[in-house]
């Protein structure tokens, strides 16, 4: 049967002049903001192109970052492998820690909290989502750093038979582990809010049915709510991952920048691409600046890919509900 709703039928409408101008103007504005992404990518590519050309694939695979000596005796050498690995390691630690908490907080707010505290708690969650990253940074630098160094020491003493819990020297501050914990805290609100959104859309009748069959609350959550929210949760986790990959100042303040690929998460050495840019920017040579532009482009493309995928997943989870 053919459907002929206004929206669906192809209709030729001749609009008045005011409307044509109005629609053109809005379209121009929208396309302008849309094209920002393309502009960012092309300008960074344009500025960083020389470095990509000079170093080729080793820009990604080499861990050495050296701006060279002024007299040219030591040539400059740029590679972001250590920083890329650092970005990924800290982001993975962050999401590994944050995800279980996000699930629990979302379940608590949706299904466990008494209704009179649900609203205020949600407001508080929205509020902490707005805490600026520099404040996370200063707190991480002064409070968390010392606390978590102690935890890292314990982890190391119990689990040093697992290779990534080993350390080359007993210094536990400013490690990828601590940066990961801080990032976990920073991405918890966004991951939780996506989880909450998908969990709240779980079909009420199925939940009631699970109860009605003599099940428990946890039984209903495990058999109905969690499977229903799984794909949305993956999207939420990826949104968090994207944020964690691109964070600058907080990581800059709690992580010891070392140009060496480090997978020992408790060791005091690491970095990420964003903090590399912030660290080197102020004293960079013109050539090194181009290297930073190139690094920025790589970071941009990686986070954009992660975010676009996450957005697709979350939107699909929203719409199928």
């Amino acid at each position: 049967m053919e459907s002929t709703d206004l929206k669906q039928r192809e209709i030729v409408i001749r609009r008045g002049l005011a409307d044509r101008i109005f629609r053109r103007a809005m379209a121009t504005g929208a396309i302008l903001s849309l094209s920002l992404l393309a502009l960012i990518a092309s300008f960074l590519l344009f500025r960083g192109f020389e470095v990509f050309r000079d170093f080729g694939f080793s820009f990604i695979t080499s861990a050495k970052w050296d701006s060279g000596s002024a007299d040219g005796v030591t040539p400059a050498s740029f590679g972001i492998a250590a920083m890329l690995v650092g970005s990924v390691v800290t982001a993975i630690i962050a999401i590994t820690v944050a995800l279980p908490f996000a699930i629990c907080v979302a379940l608590f707010l949706e299904y466990y909290a008494p209704s009179f505290i649900r609203k205020p708690l949600t407001a508080v969650l929205d509020l902490v989502a707005a805490i600026p990253s520099v404040i996370y940074g200063i707190w991480g630098y002064t409070i968390l750093n010392n606390l978590a160094a102690g935890w890292a020491k314990s982890l190391n003493s119990w689990f040093d038979w697992i290779w990534f819990f080993k350390v080359p020297a007993p210094i536990f501050t400013r490690s990828p582990f601590i940066a990961g914990l801080l990032l976990a805290l920073m991405i918890l609100p966004i991951t939780t809010s996506v989880a909450r959104e998908v969990y709240s859309q779980a079909p009420r009748d199925q939940i009631d049915a699970a109860y009605g069959l003599g099940g428990t609350k946890w039984g209903a959550i495990r058999s109905v709510v969690m499977p229903f929210g799984r794909s949305g949760l993956v999207g939420g986790a990826m949104l968090g991952l994207g944020r964690a990959l691109g964070e600058t100042v907080a990581v800059y303040l709690v992580l010891n920048l070392v140009f060496k690929i480090n997978l020992q998460i408790l060791a005091s050495a690491g970095g990420n691409v964003a903090s590399l840019i912030a660290t080197r920017f102020s004293e960079a040579t013109p050539y090194e600046l181009k290297g930073l532009m190139a690094a920025g482009l790589v970071l941009f493309l990686v986070t954009l890919a992660v975010n676009a995928t996450a957005t697709l997943i979350v939107n699909r989870a929203r719409n199928t509900a």
């Binding site: 920002l36 960074l44 691109g246 840019i277 941009f300 975010n307 957005t311």
Partner: peptide
């Protein structure tokens, strides 16, 4: 939506 994930340093 995707733009909201652009790292601030970029």
């Amino acid at each position: 939506q995707a733009m909201s994930g652009v790292p601030s340093i970029v």
